[in-house]
Amino acid sequence: MGRHDPSPHRSDLVIRPRLRRTLAGRLCPNAILDGERRFDDVAAGRFAIVTSTEPPATQRADIERRGAVLVTAEPGGELHQWLRTGGARVAIVRPDGTVLSAGRQLPACH
């Protein structure tokens, strides 16, 4: 079953700035990540942090402790290009594959 892009409006389920185009509300591509597995298989129904920059070990541990998965967008890969095209370095992807928010920095987790 394929995913479609309903592009939800700004709400508590999608955090989108009013005056700037963003990836928020769009579907994350179901890209091949390691030559075999696709994004959906790696995320496995969890929140995912897609990032083009490697976070510090403490932030990585916090992401994992919260039950999310960290996906590093490799240079030249589909997810890296998707982030770049969207003007972002990081995207928080909901379990349904829709981007909750996107930006230049990974938000601090408290």
Rank of each mutant, 00 (worst) to 15 (best):
H80F: 14
D62W: 02
G2F: 12
F39S: 04
A57H: 14
R84N: 05
G97F: 10
L27M: 15
A73C: 04
G45W: 00
R21N: 15
E64W: 03
R65C: 01
D34L: 03
C28I: 12
T53D: 05
R104W: 11
A44D: 07
Q81H: 14
A102K: 04
P17Q: 15
S101E: 15
Q105N: 07
L27D: 07
W82A: 03
S101R: 13
N30P: 00
E36A: 07
D40F: 00
S7M: 12
G86R: 10
G45Q: 06
T72P: 05
H110T: 08
R16W: 02
V71T: 04
L106N: 01
T22Y: 09
A91S: 08
R3I: 07
R20E: 04
Q105F: 13
Q105S: 00
H4V: 01
L100M: 06
G25K: 02
A48K: 11
D5W: 04
P8I: 05
L83K: 02
H9T: 07
Q59K: 13
I63K: 13
L79V: 09
R46H: 08
V50D: 04
R37C: 05
T51C: 14
R16D: 02
L33E: 07
I63Y: 04
G77E: 11
D34M: 02
S52D: 14
A91G: 01
D41T: 06
V93G: 03
Q105C: 06
A88F: 00
D12K: 03
R66V: 05
E78M: 11
D34C: 01
D41Q: 10
R66D: 06
T51G: 14
T53R: 15
